[in-house]
Amino acid sequence: MSNPTHSQQAAIMRSMLGRARGLGSAKSGTGHWWAQRLTAIALVPLGVWFVIGAIAHAGASRAGIEHWISGPVTATLMLALIACMFQHMQLGLQVVIEDYVHSESCRVATLLAMKAATALLAILAALSVLKMALAG
């Protein structure tokens, strides 16, 4: 009689619950869905606020934009907008990529590139707001 291999031994030693864990919904399955809704709700007032601000500053000089963005309330709302917008965008683009990019290696590569690009854009936007807010 041959001894069981290491993986067979591991399979035997694990309990039924241990084997089932991580295979299905374990209270984290709704995380993506919920985050997309939370950011969507936040983006309703933030989006309206930004469009009104953008209209009011259409064609403004650089000094005018700096003056607007550097106010503490504007800077706070801009940072909130940037955080919610880029998280919402990342979650949305993730679903689009998962739906349409079928090859696994290609999908993982596209997802990683998209996550990196959205994170860098968010950092650049936030840093630009902070630079104007802290300089003024």
Binding site: R62, I65, E66, I69, M85, F86, M89, G92, L93, V96, T118, L121, L124, A125, L127, S128, V129, K131, M132
Partner: peptide
Amino acid sequence: RLMGVALAVGTLLFVWWLAAAASSDAAFA
């Protein structure tokens, strides 16, 4: 979904405009 993807592309313009305002007169111009 299409408009969502279009908006994602639009954020490039938004971030460029914001970074330009924070950078220099030439970049903003």
